[in-house]
Structure formats: structure tokens, C-alpha cells
Simulated assay, not measured.
Amino acid sequence: MSSEVKLPAGVRPAPAAAKVRAYVRLAKLDIIDYYLALPVALLLLAPAQRLSPGTVLTLVLFGLGELCVIAASVAFDDVTGYRDGSDAANYGPDAPRRRLARKPLLAGTLTPTEAIRFGWAAAVAGALLWAGAAAVAPHRSAWTLVLAALCLVTAVQYSWGLKISYRGWQEVFLFGFGVGMVLVPYGLLSSSLSGFAVLQAVLFGAGPMLFGLYSNTHDIEGDARVGRPTVAVLTSPRGNAAFITAMTFAQVACVVGSALAGVAPWWFPLAMLPMIALRGTELDIAFRRRDILLARRTAIRNHRVTVVLLCAVSLALPLLPGTTP
């Protein structure tokens, strides 16, 4: 194991009063994008079921567990990035102070030992909360429980233990975890799995994957230095651009193809036009204007727009007779 990097010049350990803020930053609680799966899953249910006590309790427990599982994943990711030097490369001493503060290990407000303890505590809490959600849920199909366990294990092992993101699986995880965060709560609340639910989960999961691809493009140097084999590291700039373009068009193809196949209503592509237009904007910003970080911010906003559109479609379906897929 490589030795831990030194703190940036001028950075001193934080006083005890700053620990709570440091843990909040470690957990990345301001990054809400995976949590947006909850309203998507909720609105896939029949209207009469959405506000039933069992539904609300299941979603509250699952949502709290999701928060803990993600907190564990990003905490371990920060520890690994601190130790191998990739965070020092990507959030170097010349980075703006606001940005450096998002990495409490680099900023000196937490120690690796504190972050590791936090990560394990969050992982255990997340597992218990998800078990509680399953215990009170109306349905507990085998596939739902297996998928929940897979999401838990892979999230904790993302940059820790098996380090799946260091073994070529980062992009798969970013997509698959998003899919799981829609399908697991939906499966706990629904007796069957519809093609339209799977479609919405796939479109949701594509969001974090796509803005993750732009992040990886920006972080090529640091990731390559520590042997993190992202697509951006493994391919040429042209190959990476082609991969991002292909993944973007794949999401659009799912929207159009689902309507043609009868999985979604015929008007679904029209409802998703704002998302499609923003995807084109992202590609233009990234590869014509050469502003990867702006493309990433645009992709994050587009993911949130996509969530709003998916929720609007689910709300509209019962009001439009004959259009339910």
C-alpha cells in the first residue's frame, strides 16, 4: 500500500467544533442525484398506493438506508483517493479553497482513521435500515432482495476491499447502482415488475453514469497515475469522446425505441425532448467547446431535469386513457 500523501501547504487539522461539518462533507450530502430515485419509484406505483402508510414507511427506511450506504461508499472512496494520491492530483493545493473543502482528508479536517470508522458505521446503519425496509414492505420478491444486497456490497466495495472501480467496473457501477435505486424500492412496493419501470430505471441510471464519464475525462491524469482504469484512461481522447457519444445516443435510443416497442406511451419521446436537447448540448460543450467541467455540470442538471420529466410522465399516465404501457 502506498503511503498517505501530505496535507497541502498551509492546511492544519480542524478543531473539534468543525468535525460535524467535516463529516457532512465526507458523506457528500449535497450530492442528491441518486436520492432522486425515490420519487421516480414512488410515482411508478398506482395512485391509490402512493401515500399508503406501508409505502411511506418503506420509502422512509429505504431512503435513510440509501443515504447511509452512499455515505459509506464516498467515505471509503475519499480514504482510498487520499492514500493513493489521486485526490491530491485532482484536487491539488492550487485548487480553490471551496473545492478543496469537499475533500476533508486533504483539507485536514478529518483523519483517515476517522473516515474509515465513519464509513463502516454508515455501511452497517445502511444495511440495518434496508433490512428494516424489507421487513415492513408489502412485497419481498427474491430478485428485489438480491438486487438490494448487490447494491449494498458493490457500493461499499467501490473503492475499498475489492476496489471494483479500480478494476474496470466504475462506469458499470455508476449505471447499475442508479438502476438499483429505482428498482429496489419499486420491487418492495409492487407485486410485479413492468417494462416501463425497468425503462425508467435505465434512464435514471444513465444520468450518474454520463456525468461520471465527464468527471473521469477531467481526472485522466490522476486516475492514470494510480492505475484506475476508467474508459477515459484506457482509450484515446477520440475513443473516449466516441464512448460518451455512444452512451448518450443509447439513452436517447431507449426513449424512442421504448415508444416504438409499446413499452412506453407513443408520446413518451415528445415528453422527453428537453432531456434529448440537453444531451446534445452536453456533447457540444465537451467536445467542440472543450469545457469538460461545464459539460459535467450540464449533465448533472440534465439528470435532474430527466427525473422531473419521468415523474411528470408517471403522473400523466392515469389521466390519459389508453396510453398506459
Rank of each mutant, 00 (worst) to 15 (best):
R21T: 06
V60C: 05
G85L: 11
L29W: 12
T80V: 04
A101D: 10
A41K: 11
P47I: 06
T80I: 03
Y91G: 02
G65A: 11
K19Q: 11
V60T: 05
L110G: 12
R99Q: 14
L29P: 03
A95M: 09
D30R: 15
L67E: 02
F62T: 06
A9L: 06
G108K: 14
R25T: 02
A72Y: 05
S86T: 13
S86D: 07
R102Y: 06
S86G: 01
A14Q: 06
R50H: 05
G85N: 13
P104N: 13
L61D: 03
K103A: 09
C68W: 12
L57D: 00
Y91N: 14
A27N: 11
R50A: 02
L29C: 04
L44V: 03
A22I: 06
P39E: 10
P39S: 12
V20Y: 07
K19C: 01
G10Q: 06
G10Y: 04
R102A: 15
R102C: 07
D84T: 07
Y35R: 10
V20R: 15
D77L: 06
R83H: 06
V20P: 01
N90E: 07
N90V: 08
Y91T: 13
S73L: 15
Y23H: 15
A88K: 13
L64E: 09
L100F: 01
L38M: 15
Y82V: 04
G54Y: 02
A22N: 07
F62M: 10
R50K: 09
L59P: 00
A101Q: 13
R25N: 14
C68Q: 14
V69C: 13
V60F: 02
G10L: 04
R12F: 02
R83K: 12
A41T: 08
G54T: 01
A37V: 03
C68K: 12
A16R: 14
R25I: 00
P13G: 04
L100H: 04
D30E: 12
T58N: 03
L43Y: 15
L45K: 09
L36V: 02
D84A: 08
P93R: 10
A27P: 01
T55H: 04
L51P: 00
A22M: 07
L44K: 04
G108F: 10
K19F: 00
Q49K: 14
T80C: 13
